[in-house]
Design a protein around this nucleic acid. Sequence first.
DNA 1: CAGAATCCGCTAAGATACTG
DNA 2: CAGTATCTTAGCGGATTCTG
Lengths: 126, 126
Amino acid sequence: MAEEIYQLAVDITLKTISGKWKTSILCNLGTAPMRTGELKRRLPGISQRILTKQLKELETDQIIKRKVYPEVPPRVEYCLTEHGKTLRKILLEMSEWGSEHAELQNASGHNYEIIDQNLKGFQDMS
Amino acid sequence: MAEEIYQLAVDITLKTISGKWKTSILCNLGTAPMRTGELKRRLPGISQRILTKQLKELETDQIIKRKVYPEVPPRVEYCLTEHGKTLRKILLEMSEWGSEHAELQNASGHNYEIIDQNLKGFQDMS
DNA sequence: CAGAATCCGCTAAGATACTG
DNA sequence: CAGTATCTTAGCGGATTCTG
C-alpha cells in the first residue's frame, strides 16, 4: 500500500486541490453532473491527457464520482460526491481571501488579475 | 510590472500557501517572531536556499515581515503581518478538512499519515 | 548567521498520435 | 467520445560552495 506522509493536516487539503485545473473542475461540477466533453469545452486549453489525469486523481480522493454508461460512443459523467461537497465551504472562504489578497497586493504595486471574477465560483454550488 | 493571471480567486490563495515548506513556516511563525536559524532548526530537512526563497515569497505576498537588526553577526527576524494572520482561519479549516479526509481515505484502504498530528497547527496562533 | 550563486534531478503539465 | 501511450518541456526543490 502506498504510504502518503504529510507534515500537517492542512497539507492534505492542499494536495487534494492542487493541480492546475482542479479548482476549475470543481467549480464547474458544482451544479450538476457533466460529461467529459462538456467539461473539456468549459476548460479551454486543457489537454485530453491532463483532464483525464486530474479527474482520476479527484476520483481517487473520493471528491468526484465517475459514472460510465454502457453506450457506443462512450458516455461518461462526473459529479461531486457528498464528501466533495464538504470542500465547498473551504473553497469559498479561500476565494474570498484570495480576492482580498489580490486587492491588497494590487494596492501595493502588484498586478493580480482574476478571469472568472463575477462568477463567484463556489457560492451557489447546489 | 509582472502580471499574474488567475482563473479563479481561490487559485490566488492556493498559490500563496503552496510551496513545500510554507504551511510549516506559517505554523511556526504563529506565536512569535523568530530568527532564521531557529526557523531552520524547526524545519528539519530544509536547505538554506529554499528557506530563504520561501520566506522571500511570503514576504513579497505581505504574509510575513522581515526585520533586520544592524548587528554582526547578522540577525534577522520574521513574524506574521496582520494580513498574514487573516490566513489562520482558512488554514485551520483546511486542517480540519484534511484530518477528516485522511480518516475517510484510510477507511477506504489508503494510508495517509500526519506527522504533526497532536499539534493542531493553527488553532492557538496568538 | 543569513543569504547569494551554480548546478542538477524529478515531476507536473503540454503536444501529439492512436484505440475501442 | 473518452481514454491511453510517448515524448518533450518548464519549474520547483535539493546539494554545495562562497561571502560580508
